[in-house]
Design a protein around this nucleic acid. Sequence first.
DNA 1: ATGTCTATTGCACACGTGTGCAAAGAAAGG
DNA 2: CCTTTCTTTGCACACGTGTGCAATAGACAT
Lengths: 373, 373
Amino acid sequence: MTITIKDIARQAGVAHTTVSRALRGSPLVAAETSERIRQIAAESGYRPSAAARSLKTNRSQVLGVVVSSLDDPFFSEILQGIESVTQEHGYSLFAAASQHDPQREQKIVQAMLEHRADGVIICSTPFSAEQAHHLLEYGRPIVVVNNQAAEEYRYSIYHDDVDGSQQVTRHLIDLGHRRIAYLGNASSGRTTLDRLAGFQQAMQSAGLPILDGYLYQAAGGGPADGLAAAHHFSGLMQSQAADLERHSMLQSASLLPPTAVVCFNDMLAIGLLQGLSLAGWRVPQDISIAGFDNIVFSAYTQPPLTTFDQPKRYIGAEAARLILELLQTPGGDMARWEPKIRLLRGRLLPRASTASPDPTLPSPSQEQRWRGG
Amino acid sequence: MTITIKDIARQAGVAHTTVSRALRGSPLVAAETSERIRQIAAESGYRPSAAARSLKTNRSQVLGVVVSSLDDPFFSEILQGIESVTQEHGYSLFAAASQHDPQREQKIVQAMLEHRADGVIICSTPFSAEQAHHLLEYGRPIVVVNNQAAEEYRYSIYHDDVDGSQQVTRHLIDLGHRRIAYLGNASSGRTTLDRLAGFQQAMQSAGLPILDGYLYQAAGGGPADGLAAAHHFSGLMQSQAADLERHSMLQSASLLPPTAVVCFNDMLAIGLLQGLSLAGWRVPQDISIAGFDNIVFSAYTQPPLTTFDQPKRYIGAEAARLILELLQTPGGDMARWEPKIRLLRGRLLPRASTASPDPTLPSPSQEQRWRGG
DNA sequence: ATGTCTATTGCACACGTGTGCAAAGAAAGG
DNA sequence: CCTTTCTTTGCACACGTGTGCAATAGACAT
């Protein structure tokens, strides 16, 4: 049925071992013989069995990628970056989505171990340490991308989210905003913390307080979550606007609506933008909104979204290159390889969703009267 | 190093073949023995070698998926649908992006053949018949999703794009539109043709002409292509508006701007929406825009996009189920299996980007004076 | 001619798993 | 007690490939 090197050997009148050598390009076989064998192999449509080779060489030429969801526009772009590099180097890609489900995670790791993937790239933000341990125990190198616990892994590529989040926040501050809120995503592990930290640090170093209710954590990181969060901010703005009106007669302003919102990512920002627009708020006139990641669609909202351009494809490509490099190093004890952590930085991408706050709104000089968060 | 059934056999005091049987759940082994073996296997963290098993059984438990791009929001959702089903059934997924590049396609097919993927799902719209032939020749069943030449393949899942496109067009006609343009995507094979055909049929059966310049094919199917196409339609509208003004004094209107545009997909529509908005046109007051696919972000544009909801995840899941079903059937001659083509239908999703045309625009009674396309 | 070296090839075995067949033991039936 | 049948286990071999080692033959020097 399927033809093997033995078939070719028979046809060429040599031993199958000579065929094996010829096709692998070994110098141990005469040029003439080699040529003849290659000829026959090509004509017969011979396809070497990866299984047999893998069994013998302990190399599967397969890399695993774990991602939380395959249809996440952020991860899928990273995935594409990984794929383009691995394909170029003759490795195949094993893609699996954990869906934030420990049981699926477990099955994925099991499958990758059984297939003896040469290495695994983990993009899934929350990934159980236990499963990772299983992989390492089996000698499979792991490269982690933007993970919650980059320090726990020896090899990782990650984006400096703290810096990025700071830049975004500072951008708003530079525009003149003083009352800036933050819309987070509770379920993204390390990234959750880093971006929030960046926001808080930028606010603090500018001497700005984070007011009550200005920190809101959505349950997920999709546009629907952003839309839902709009209710929170919208309510906040309305009640505070009402408060403001009431109190303005008393020359006091203990509650004020935010003039800008920094979002955990673009998808949340897009949902929020939609929600606030529906509620009648104008962006950026009434409120500025900034996202993070620069997913493709962030450029096509109305108004286009100010965001932080994370080099997603490049991050994926770097992760792939790193793991390929690890596979080059002459085996030995994996634990003795030196750790390698690569920190990448993106750039701020100011677009039309952020602008200076309306000067007719309460002036910054009143700041000290607001309640701190 | 890595532990095998022989190690377990030694520890259990049996032959490795008994271990093999026990772990595979063969009834040929005593319950007690079986239990003991499973115990040891679990404790020792034994992972069966997929390579060895594949070699022996001719089953790799691997399915291949070819897609044109992994970060396409449409395909990645289908991919997620596929993955969720295959994972549930213990199959692993080999994902690869062809990028419309024949050479990559060739490498992908090569890799999948070498890994002896049990079956392949092709979502990449343009896929070389030659490569497909290689797969079939090797006995690998192929299931095709929304492909250009569904009839050429024995197994396919596809969406009734003709019907969908008709529905979208009719929706606009029902709203009162008479001058409707079409923004296509030249590079999507079968889908390109079907959606255009649906548009044309709906127009024809309503007795409406397709005017000169109203059919525009973009080079690709991304938002950037839609944005670029906006120049075309915007120019069309301006020049025609100018023409209209000139001619209105003569009570004639040989050239009129479209009041609606049907787009090949949501991404083009989103780009077009952006472009026309930038050019100062209001949607849907000045012009209605409809997309196709119902990608996540189509709900978050301003205004939200009227589109056709294609059940992407379901399509992917069905494709996976179909190929798994094929793998169940007792081998034999693949050519004798009966073909199976599954046609799915989505539903129209009217949103705010389409509305009745402005009644102050030229009335439908003037239709017969327009130049036909 | 003999010995040495090199180039080329084949043999034997291994990788980890699964299966047909025989063997051994136990149970059942006479 | 013997024969038959069933249950349980082991042996031998196969899947397709790669590699250490020996074998052969030719080239070259002595």
